[in-house]
């Protein structure tokens, strides 16, 4: 059973054996503690005003993004949605640094917010476009547009939700 599943993945992606092993390990990594009443994906959905299904899909894309970082010598840029998953995962410090980076990825993946300014803007815009291309080349599918909008800086529903949340807090 496992062998056949592995074969399916290999035919659907463009990975060498080592990359495939890493991707399998990343996929198998559980962000949700299935015994928790309020899981990672529950929190992610609630904080971003997403449906549970969308949150689970965002986590799947986050894992792909991390894989792209691991298989590239260049910096990679996530979409806003994927970035929200990353932000939340960073809050779970033990899970992120020990269990994910140290044990699964065997390396540290640092998160670097923009320093602002037009130069940074262009840098991230280009990096985002390269990330999308890397995604296509690796997974041999188009990134889902609702989680990877073609235009990095376009307003997404999740950005809008966060703005509304901030607005409500201010009121």
């Amino acid at each position: 059973m496992n062998i056949s599943m592995e074969k399916i993945y290999i035919t659907k992606t463009k990975m060498n054996y080592k990359e495939q092993k890493l991707w399998d390990a990343i996929r198998e990594f559980e962000l949700d503690d299935d015994e928790a009443v309020y899981t990672f994906s529950d929190r992610l959905a609630k904080e971003n005003n997403w449906s549970k299904g969308f949150a689970l899909r965002a986590i799947e894309e986050y894992k792909k993004f991390i894989f792209l970082i691991c298989t590239s010598s260049q910096s990679r840029t996530p979409s806003d949605e994927v970035d929200q998953v990353w932000h939340l995962h960073l809050l779970y410090t033990r899970s992120y640094w020990n269990e994910f980076c140290r044990d699964v990825l065997k390396r540290e993946i640092h998160h670097g917010p923009t320093r602002g300014g037009p130069q940074e803007h262009d840098k991230f815009k280009n990096a985002y476009a390269e990330t999308l291309q890397h995604y296509r080349d690796t997974f041999l599918i188009e990134p889902p547009p609702d989680l990877w909008p073609p235009d990095h800086l376009s307003s997404s529903p999740s950005t809008f939700s966060r703005l509304m949340k901030t607005w409500k807090t201010l009121l």
Binding site: F65, C70, S75, R76, L105, I109, H110, P113, F124, R162
Partner: peptide, 17 residues
């Protein structure tokens, strides 16, 4: 809150090295 992390939504990057 993470609200102090201004600018994240306009660009974040990650690098394994």
């Amino acid at each position: 809150s993470c609200s102090g992390d201004g600018g994240c939504s306009s660009g974040c990057g990650g690098c394994g090295d």
